[in-house]
Nucleic acid binder design. Structure first.
Length: 196
DNA sequence: GTAGTGATTTTCT
DNA sequence: GAAAATCACTACA
């Protein structure tokens, strides 16, 4: 493992959600799955910010499903969508404030064999993690992984101190409300960004 | 190459 | 009962 790699501390997540989203680009997600170690370089995220954001699950108050978004920052929020897919988020900001960053795409780094095994039909590396639903499928993440502590040893993010990528921003994808916000951030030079 | 639509189930109204 | 932070497949240009 890279000696310079450092796990992101809870203070990283305990900041304004837009800043956290932008800073996540170029960082690495690490998941020590039952089958082996999986890692990917984050290249696309979206911010979902509580009461200001009609597209955010937390906008209409706390419910059973979005409970962890209102908890401490630095936890995982995984929800089930469209009857077949899961999406992974990182909870941000203080306890009581419902906000999170959705992980949309990453470049696969370690554990490629496991990702292919989890993703029937995928043939190219660039197609493994280029979408929130596909990312969770390749990593084998399900509702069981909702509410994990990202400062623990199972699922966490790493800073490998690479050069900050060129960052682009746009409207968010796949939502029907709140489209006026430019809260999607991505690495302009990456080839695995969600298609428009 | 783009556009349209079906799959499938949880969650909230 | 309708909508949902998606994806893959089909049709057509």
């Amino acid at each position: 493992m890279n000696k310079r790699a450092r796990k992101l501390p809870r203070s990283f997540y305990d900041r304004p959600t837009g800043l956290v989203a932008r800073d996540l680009l170029g960082k690495y997600i690490v998941y020590n799955s039952p089958k082996g170690r999986l890692t990917g370089r984050i290249v696309e995220v979206e911010a979902y910010i509580g009461h200001d954001d009609p597209a955010c699950h937390a906008a209409r108050g706390e419910t059973e499903r979005n409970r962890v978004m209102f908890g401490l920052p630095g936890f995982s929020y995984i929800y089930f969508i469209y009857g077949m897919y899961f999406c992974l988020n990182f909870v941000t900001e203080k306890k009581g404030f419902g906000a999170a960053v959705l992980l949309r795409a990453a470049e696969p780094c370690e554990g490629l064999e496991i990702m292919y095994e989890n993703s029937p039909g995928i043939k190219k590396d660039g197609q493994l993690l280029n979408g929130p639903g596909k990312f969770c499928r390749a990593f084998g993440l399900t509702r069981q992984h909702n509410g994990l502590d990202l400062t623990g040893s199972v699922l966490y993010l790493e800073n490998r101190f690479e050069k900050t990528p060129r960052i682009g921003r746009s409207r968010r994808i796949g939502i029907r409300v709140g489209q006026d916000k430019l809260w999607r951030y991505f690495d302009v030079d990456s080839k695995v960004i969600t298609k428009r």
